[in-house]
Design a protein around this nucleic acid. Structure first.
Length: 310
DNA sequence: AAATCGTGGGC
DNA sequence: TGCCCAAGATT
């Protein structure tokens, strides 16, 4: 990409508009309440927010923080404790990785959350986005950050898109993020862009009329919805395994502190009016959950007993 | 490196 | 209703 996508003047104008908008209109979120920011809370929230709406995490974080008030407390959580506490946040493997991340920091970094982006990147459950987000939001380092909101904003801002799926590549987005990064304002800049992305520059039906940067945007008032899928035939798509996995984990959460036998699980899931679950398939799913350290299996009197892993 | 990893809400 | 989407990471 060329560096002259926007003139210096245009960049400054956008920076000022976005940062000013944020000063008066930023979302109030639990992980934004501490000044200076608490790196532990930033770490928690950023992992929780992966592929998950801010509104849900805003609800869940306070109770989680009460149960695990420190990095050390989180590091000591058992699988079962962390999975129970993770209720409603999805992608249960993330919960174990978060605990493993905390444990790694306690065991190898004196319990101090690293501020080095390359070290952060090596921790369990922390990838390119989250390492950058922590460096920027917790430690105010002037690094680029790209999430789905920022990628979508850049995609639309810089050229007129064909539809709401027309996006810059991941790589291009990071390059643009580096080029558009205002000096010394990574933190506020990227949080502002994420707010604007989630409030106005949404994937479908963007609200350009209310968007603070629509006057700078090549795609303003011009984003159209993408194809509504060729819709060939009913193509009864199979239910993804993760849906069954999620139902099983949730069932075990609800039967808190008890084990369940596999036949009961089969029966319970059947009653949810879903027909494609047979015994062998359930066994397969259970073994994968076991290998993920999410559940424990034991066979007693020829029946399989299932419980959350301790 | 394309697939897989939950869950809830919007339309 | 069924499909899409959401502060991505891992294998």
């Amino acid at each position: 990409m060329k560096k002259d996508i926007l003139s210096r003047h245009q960049k400054l104008s956008i920076h000022k508009t976005v940062l000013t908008w944020f000063t008066y209109n930023q979302k109030k979120l639990p992980w934004r309440s501490a000044t200076p920011p608490d790196p532990y809370i930033v770490l928690l929230s950023e992992v929780m927010l992966q592929q998950t709406q801010t509104s849900r995490i805003a609800e869940k974080l306070p109770a989680f923080l009460e149960q695990f008030p420190t990095l050390e407390a989180l590091a000591q959580a058992t699988n079962k404790e962390i999975i129970l506490a993770w209720q409603g946040m999805g992608y249960n493997n993330r919960a174990l990785r978060l605990r493993d991340c905390a444990k790694t920091i306690v065991d190898h970094y004196y319990g101090i959350i690293p501020d080095d982006i390359d070290i952060l990147r090596t921790l369990p459950g922390i990838g390119e986005y989250t390492s950058s987000a922590i460096a920027s939001f917790a430690f105010s380092q002037n690094v680029p950050v790209v999430d789905v909101n920022i990628r979508r904003i850049f995609s639309r801002l810089l050229r007129k898109v064909a539809n709401n799926h027309d996006m810059l590549s991941e790589k291009e987005s990071w390059e643009i993020a580096g080029i558009l990064l205002p000096k010394n304002h990574s933190n506020l800049w990227h949080q502002a862009l994420m707010d604007i992305g989630s409030l106005f520059c949404t994937s479908r039906s963007p609200r350009c009329h209310d968007c603070p940067i629509s006057s700078h945007c090549q795609s303003a008032f011009a984003v159209i919805d993408g194809e509504k899928t060729p819709k060939k035939e009913p193509t009864h798509r199979a239910i993804p395994h993760r849906i069954w996995r999620g139902k099983i984990i949730e069932l075990l959460r609800q039967s808190n502190h008890h084990s369940e036998n596999a036949n009961y699980i089969l029966h319970a899931l059947f009653q949810e009016n879903i027909s494609t679950l047979d015994s062998d398939f359930l066994d397969y799913i259970l073994k994968k959950l076991e290998s993920n350290n999410l559940i424990e299996l034991q066979t007693i009197n020829n029946t399989i007993i299932v419980s959350l892993k301790e």
